[in-house]
Amino acid sequence: MSRLEPRLLGIPVPRIGPESVPYWEGTRLGELRFQRCDACGAANFGPGLVCRKCRSRDLTWTRSAGRGEVFSWTVIWRPQTPAFEVPYAPAIVRLDEGYDLLTALVGLDHAEISDGLRVCVEFHEISPEITLPFFAPDPEHR
């Protein structure tokens, strides 16, 4: 058994876009943020100008509790580039606030990943500007 670790060195660094500045500000501060629609209440992610549910343009950045469950995952054994040491486990996590985030799972063996596994966010800095969210098993549900 070997625990999956975040891959942080030599990986491509995100270039912050105009609509995602509050998101990356949040991760630097240890907060996971998403946009909540003022009109219909839907959670919206990724960052945008319009609610994807009701087309309202009144969205408010909100802090997520950073907890959710594994919706889907893959375990990679042939890396994208050599910077990504295998195995690593990209996943879609469904946050409790009702949106999906593409991330990677860490802090568990790849064989322990299962549908609906409760996970919580943990942050890892890869550059002065960019701190990435990863997800590990939620200690409250172990």
């Binding site: 995100p14 876009g17 995952w73 994208q80 990209p90 996943a91 890869i126």
Partner: peptide, 18 residues
């Protein structure tokens, strides 16, 4: 290359695997 996914080592096989 999108900023929200670029750092997680995906490629087409990974996206279809999800």
């Amino acid at each position: 290359t999108n900023e929200l996914v670029v750092a997680y080592g995906l490629f087409t096989a990974a996206e279809f695997a999800l």
